[in-house]
Design a protein around this nucleic acid. Sequence first.
DNA 1: AGTATATATCAAGAATTATTGATATATCAA
DNA 2: TTGATATATCAATAATTCTTGATATATACT
Lengths: 103, 103
Amino acid sequence: MSTGVANKKAIDSLKALAEPIRLEIIESLSSGEKCVCDLMQETGLAQSKISFHLKVLKDAGVITDRQSGRWVYYQLDIRTLKSLQNWIKKLRKGCLNEASTCK
Amino acid sequence: MSTGVANKKAIDSLKALAEPIRLEIIESLSSGEKCVCDLMQETGLAQSKISFHLKVLKDAGVITDRQSGRWVYYQLDIRTLKSLQNWIKKLRKGCLNEASTCK
DNA sequence: AGTATATATCAAGAATTATTGATATATCAA
DNA sequence: TTGATATATCAATAATTCTTGATATATACT
């Protein structure tokens, strides 16, 4: 019952979040959508680097994008964050029974 | 205000969780503490491999250990899971204001 | 059409992380 | 003390992920 599809998705989102640049991007997006150019300005990082990390985040389902003219705007997909949160909550629930010995 | 100590800790726990073997270990521990030998049996993996991943988890604060004779028992530290959960919740909160455009 | 801008992608190298088999340490049991 | 068992650690290699600079693509403007 352990390594199912749900865990695969959880691992993808965890891995996507677990990197400083991507986390910086995520936190920036939590105040609203941004284009790559915005993120370049905010972070001072090279364009290809930002695009690389945006792709990782998008592939993991943590963000979505929409194109508008020459610009591509990225935004958080809070549904993924929500399900990640639930996944952690479930983990913790296993610790609540009498037999368990979690800290 | 972004890459502070809190984020450093969040990244450490996220990174520790974001790996299939470690996740399997974590899920096993959520039903109670286990020694390395238990985990070897459950997973069928080599001892040095298990110890390696346990160290990653322990360094990240996701698990703790206690020694009893020749055995070392590992258990989940739900305090870390709890604060990870809060950290995600906080991220999502940024999406709730009027200006925000998260999915 | 020609030029400029925004972003994506690619290939090569650098850096990080994981695996493996071997060895070390510590505890217990005879 | 000797031998066995449980776990940790180490060195070498393998695998994965990240960075960089260059190039490609698509849109818009003149």
